[in-house]
Amino acid sequence: MNAIQQDFVLAVEGLTVSFDGFKAVNDLSFYVDENEIRVIIGPNGAGKTTVLDLICGRTKATDGTIKFRGKELTKMKEHQIVHAGVGRKFQNPSIYEDLTVFENLEISFPRGRNVFGALMFKRDKEVVDKVEEIADLIFLKDDLNKQAALLSHGQKQWLEIGMLLIQDPQLLMLDEPVAGMSVAERKQTAELLNKITQGRSVIVIEHDMQFVADIAKRVTVLHQGKVLSEGSMERVQNDPKVKEVYLGH
């Protein structure tokens, strides 16, 4: 049993959270493999964002376990979960508007994360090189000195993805990365995601079916806090239960 669990990057079992009796996530189990891109879809209120909140420690589980490479995440604090190698992007672009693009990326650089370390932090060549490398990847190389508030919505989304990449997480969780983006930006983002998912596992929540089809290998459909269906995009799309949930009511 244990040996099997080690093979998964993330193993969620029997996960339940209840808010005043309402079970937003109910006895949920799913597993994410090494280097897998998993897309979670589902109607509004299915508990998709709550699942990410539970994994990254923002919400505490009522019951169940979340094992990341054998480590139990439900007992850990948010920053410890990040140190373990889990990165999470929020639904609305969550960046530091008063700082420059460079400073936004620099803050996410995984060094000097305690009070003393932050006071002694030096902006050396290693940091600058890494920031430039990531900025190049997220199409923001020419905007490094720009104040982040002045970026477009799509650029802000990329910046936040860049802030995660600089941490080099082993599990990357993206909550609606293309929401509010133009068609051109969506294409660029799909390209970006395909590039950055090399060598790490990714969980994506998305509504845009075209985008899902572009990036997903396996899809999990959530409904009322439970897994309704799981498998390839084709299989899920043809599942009568999924059709009923999306179209039936």
């Binding site: 990254c56 923002r58 604090k77 948010e78 920053h79 990040v82 140190h83 990165g87 999470r88 929020f90 969550s94 960046i95 530091y96 803050i107 996410s108 995984p110 994360r113 305690n114 936040e160 802030m163 941490q167």
Partner: peptide, 11 residues
């Protein structure tokens, strides 16, 4: 954005 800092690995 306090949460963003927290989820960038800072206490």
């Amino acid at each position: 954005k306090e949460d963003r800092v927290r989820f960038s690995g800072y206490d």
